[in-house]
């Protein structure tokens, strides 16, 4: 595992790329004067590309001017039959909206429209408006892939690293300087969410489903800069779902949950119903629905208690 590369000197930068350099502590220009075309060709690069990479590494590239998303308006387009969608929906940070509808109803298309900042140029004809203004063409790419972070059904990491190395790598890619603080926050909160404790030294691949899920959620809350979080069906894998939602709400994320899980669907104040490729209607969750949620959550806690008792090797019985 590499150490911190935040202030990588030209020597390390070039040797890591595979260049063989005589002495240290020279400037990038000096090295590039010395390196001949054949060496560049062997490594499959050229001087221009090296300069660009080096600048990118040091964040000198026209680094995104950190657009703060205050609202996202999805203006209705058309469903699969070409019928006009009857609604627009305005999303704000700190809000949870669930998206419901059968498989294949057009959920992915909706999310892809948001991600692409659709301007009536996708199959649905929807228009996405950020902070009340239409994003111009050049903005479309500077937002790229930073708009939505996605917690998918996948519960496993594939990276061969331990928890600390993983968080460091992610923080470095975000150019975050106070990595130690972040490390502490993440591990603490992830442990709050997961039933069983794990440490910074635990290999990612050794985490249980619940632990992985907890780490992924906390990581998204604290390290992902995307203003929108899409949660795709998190099962009840032994994590505290309410607390998980709180982390994300407190991180001022716009939270979209695509789910069939009644507890999650009801945690949202609004439910967007998708039907036949179109936004069909919005249901506001009212007091009577909140009562249903309470009931379900109570049942969940009971199940959890029984699960814990069984795990601890105890006997269980009816109250």
């Amino acid at each position: 595992m590499e150490g911190s590369w935040q202030l990588k000197n030209p020597y390390d930068f070039l040797t890591e790329m595979g260049f063989d350099l005589p002495d240290k502590n020279q400037s990038l220009d000096q090295y590039l004067n010395y390196i001949d075309e054949d060496m560049l060709e062997d490594i499959g690069t050229n001087k221009e590309m090296i300069y660009a990479s080096y600048d990118a590494l040091h964040g000198q590239l026209e680094e995104e001017s950190e657009v703060k998303v205050k609202s996202i308006l999805i203006k209705g387009g058309f469903n699969k039959d070409g019928e006009k969608e009857p609604l627009d929906i305005l999303l704000k940070p700190g809000e949870i909206v669930s998206i419901v509808g059968p498989t294949g109803s057009g959920k992915s298309r909706l999310l892809a429209d948001i991600e692409w900042l659709a301007q009536a140029d996708t199959p649905t004809g929807r228009v996405i408006v950020i902070n009340g203004i239409l994003p111009d063409e050049s903005k479309r790419y500077s937002f790229d892939e930073k708009l939505i972070s996605q917690l998918s059904q996948n519960m496993n990491f594939v990276m061969d690293a331990n928890v600390e190395e993983f968080i460091r790598m992610h923080a470095e890619s975000r150019n975050i300087k106070q990595i130690d603080e972040v490390l502490e926050t993440i591990i603490k909160h992830a442990n709050d969410l997961a039933g069983e404790p794990f440490s910074l030294e635990t290999p990612l691949t050794a985490l249980s489903g619940g632990q992985s899920r907890a780490l992924m959620i906390v990581d998204v809350a604290f390290l992902s800069k995307s203003p929108i979080v899409l949660i795709d069906e998190i099962e009840n894998a032994g994590i505290d779902r309410r607390k998980a939602m709180e982390f994300l709400v407190n991180a001022e994320k716009i939270i979209l949950i695509a789910t069939h899980d009644p507890v999650l669907a009801l945690m949202a104040n609004r439910r967007l119903v998708i039907r036949n490729g179109g936004m069909y209607k919005i249901i506001e969750s009212d007091e009577s629905e909140k009562k249903v949620l309470e009931k379900l959550e109570k049942r969940d806690r009971e199940t959890q208690k029984i699960r814990n008792a069984l795990r601890a090797g105890q006997k269980v019985q009816c109250d």
């Binding site: 972070s149 996605q150 594939v158 993983f166 992610h170 890619s173 992924m216 990581d219 992902s224």
Partner: peptide, 12 residues
Amino acid sequence: KGDIVSQAEREV
């Protein structure tokens, strides 16, 4: 294959 890895792995 972004659906097989985590958000953080995708970002890195």
